[in-house]
């Protein structure tokens, strides 16, 4: 358990030291928040009704931007090879990477979401439910990103290909996430979507570290 925390702290520290990536991430998300309303036009009711969908799309695309950071640094400096002899299993290490990725990518995006809410002129109620669905749904996206990052870690063009692998698999999360956040749904349907979303996140987070560890082991043989 001590090794687990040590690794978590080490990764969080190195992520915060490379502060440029956080700025890039937030700037990308914010740019989407500017480009989408400009492309759609300043039609407030239309923007508000599209709001949850646009925010979810924005979060998905932005979180794919930082995907290659999950393993690349450790791959380049050789820590990834050293991890194989560590006391922690490769799946535990992958689980730590998943937590760090979520904390450094999904969480900042969720924190910035109220700004997106203002830009897209959605009301407070909708904003809160979107943020709730993001909290519950981004772990699933982070889990898929983890697996895709592990699959493409040894590739030079991994950063290009990994998002293509994640997107089709992330569609259920988007469906349930936006579905739960839409204020116009019939009674009970938002709750159903929320349940499915949470179940998905739980299952994906539970299985992704093992799939990622398997991919890491195989791609280093």
């Amino acid at each position: 358990m001590r090794a687990f925390w040590a690794l978590l702290v080490r990764d969080l520290k190195s992520a915060s030291r490379a502060g440029g990536s956080l700025t890039t991430l937030l700037a990308f998300y914010l740019s989407l928040g500017v480009i989408l309303p400009i492309a759609i036009g300043p039609d407030k009711p239309l923007l508000a009704s599209l709001g949850p969908a646009l925010i979810w799309t924005g979060v998905l695309l932005s979180s794919l931007l930082g995907l290659d950071r999950i393993f690349v640094a450790d791959h380049e400096d050789g820590s990834l090879a050293a991890f194989r002899h560590s006391r922690l299993s490769l799946s535990t290490i992958s689980f730590v990477k998943l937590i760090v990725h979520w904390l450094t990518t999904a969480l900042p995006l969720i924190v910035l979401t109220p700004v997106m809410g203002v830009l897209l002129t959605i009301d407070l109620q909708t904003l809160l439910s979107v943020m709730l669905t993001l909290l519950l749904g981004t772990p699933a996206i982070a889990a898929l990103s983890l697996v895709a990052a592990a699959l493409s870690v040894s590739l030079k063009r991994g950063a290009v290909i990994a998002p293509i692998l994640v997107m089709p698999l992330a569609i259920p999360a988007v469906i349930f996430g936006v579905g739960a956040a839409k204020p116009l749904l019939g009674a009970g349907q938002a709750e159903t979507a929320l349940l499915y979303l949470s179940a998905m996140s739980l299952v994906f987070v539970a299985f992704a570290p093992f799939a990622a560890a398997l991919a890491l082991r195989l791609s280093q043989e």
């Binding site: 698999l169 259920p172 469906i175 499915y196 991919a215």
Partner: peptide, 19 residues
């Protein structure tokens, strides 16, 4: 690995799309 991850996901995708 990706093929199997996809195989696990396809029923979920189908279910979510139907919903």
């Amino acid at each position: 690995v990706l093929t199997l991850v996809g195989a696990v996901n396809i029923p979920i995708i189908k279910f979510s799309v139907d919903w």
